[in-house]
């Protein structure tokens, strides 16, 4: 039985989703061009993660095992839509600068990964704490990366000019190559600090190999490909527009 505190801090340091586990890299690279954007993305993801973790852990005994992945995706997509509405209403500027990455929170590996690895095995409170911890870890990593890229790339900190005429800003750091590079340097520093210890600890939990990204994806893939043709076509309600097309095949998405 893990203590509540260790569940909470697990996601922030020891298993930081981006810096240590290297999942959820797409929004991490794309939205960390400035600290504000990074924190906005981090908090949006965190909100979805906490809500989906809670709902999935409540429903864990109701959702049939073989259709669990489609169910998770539906729950997550629902919350993403809510977050999208809230941003449109209360933070239109942020919504504009994050753009397409808001709907793409749905396919963020962190959220589906935590649903699959944590929320469907643990109690509601633990899952909520895990969501908070993982979300905070993601937000902090985004903030760190955003600060570095914004400071070196534009000479500003949270929009305030810092090094106006002292050094000319390296604009490339706010562009795509800079994202890859700063992320590479950060993971190298993490490797150095932990001397690879974290990765080994993590790999002992069933994630061998250097790129946990592919391991996570493979886990999801296995779950999806272990499908057997399901005779459940009749159960699809024809009410929702997407249901007739998606539901029958959705049913085949889970493990038996």
């Amino acid at each position: 039985m893990k203590s509540k505190l260790s569940i909470l801090t697990n996601g922030i340091i020891k298993e930081n989703p981006v810096l240590v586990l290297v999942i959820g890299t797409c929004p991490f690279l794309a939205t960390s061009t400035s600290a504000i954007n990074g924190v906005g993305m981090g908090l949006s993801t965190m909100a979805v993660l906490i809500c989906s973790n809670i709902v999935i852990s409540i429903l864990k005994n109701v959702i049939p095992d073989r259709v669990r992945i489609p169910c998770y995706i539906t729950v997550i997509a629902g919350f993403v839509t809510i977050v999208q509405f809230l941003l449109q209403a209360y933070a239109p500027a942020l919504n504009k600068s994050l753009g397409i990455y808001i709907p793409l929170i749905v396919v963020n590996c962190i959220i589906l990964g935590r649903a699959e690895m944590f929320a469907n095995k643990n109690s509601v409170i633990d899952s909520a704490l895990d969501g908070i911890g993982m979300g905070l870890g993601f937000t902090l990593a985004l903030f760190l990366m955003g600060v570095i890229r914004e400071f070196l790339g534009a000479g500003t900190f949270l929009g305030m000019t810092v090094t106006a005429d002292l050094i000319s800003p390296m604009t490339i750091l706010t562009m795509a190559p800079g994202g890859f590079f700063v992320f590479g340097v950060l993971t190298a520093i993490i490797n150095r600090i932990t001397k690879g210890r974290v990765n080994r600890e993590f790999s002992s939990e069933g994630f061998p190999g250097e790129l946990e990204t592919s391991a996570t994806l493979n886990a999801i893939a296995e779950a999806a490909s272990a499908a057997s043709p399901a005779p459940v076509k009749e159960t699809a309600p024809a009410a929702a527009p997407a249901a007739p097309a998606s539901a029958p095949t959705e049913e085949e998405g889970g493990e038996k």
Partner: peptide, 20 residues
Amino acid sequence: YLQTVVFILVIAALVQLVEL
């Protein structure tokens, strides 16, 4: 506004269908 929900379900269904 249901775009996100519908699209991801359609894609998931499509992938399964293509596989079959």
